[in-house]
């Protein structure tokens, strides 16, 4: 039997990749992809815990989470689209309205 820790490490790796992407990528689409990675890392965790505790509700939650991720992606893309309309580009570097 594969130990639970392996799954958790996997999920951590995926999460860190997503994190790194969030921190470094300039392109808005890539950013959203990174967010998806992080979400999926969480999903892996959920499924793993669900299986190893013999409790199906975790897996049900993963389904919900995937659906929410879809909603989130939809909104994210919509925002990117309107940014693109305004500025003709989707590099988040230049979106610094929050600056001092």
């Amino acid at each position: 039997m594969i130990p639970l820790t392996y799954y958790l490490i996997l999920s951590t790796i995926v999460f860190t990749i997503g994190l790194y992407g969030i921190m470094t990528q300039r392109n808005g689409v890539r950013l959203l992809m990174s967010v998806e990675l992080m979400l999926n890392a969480a999903n892996i965790n959920l499924v793993a815990f669900s299986s190893y505790n013999d409790d199906m509700s975790g897996q049900v939650f993963v389904l919900f989470s995937i659906a929410l991720a879809a909603a989130e992606a939809v909104i994210g893309f919509a925002i990117l689209l309107s940014i693109y309309r305004m500025r003709d580009m989707i590099d988040v570097d230049n979106i610094n309205l929050l600056r001092w």
Partner: peptide, 30 residues
């Protein structure tokens, strides 16, 4: 499970999805 224990979250989620879609369309449409 979805249709017994988690039926209410499921229904809520459907509404969330729907509203997200509508919102996305509204924003993207410009």
């Amino acid at each position: 499970l979805i249709f017994t224990q988690f039926v209410i979250p499921f229904e809520v989620l459907s509404i969330v999805l729907l509203s997200a879609l509508i919102g996305a369309i509204y924003i993207a449409k410009g």
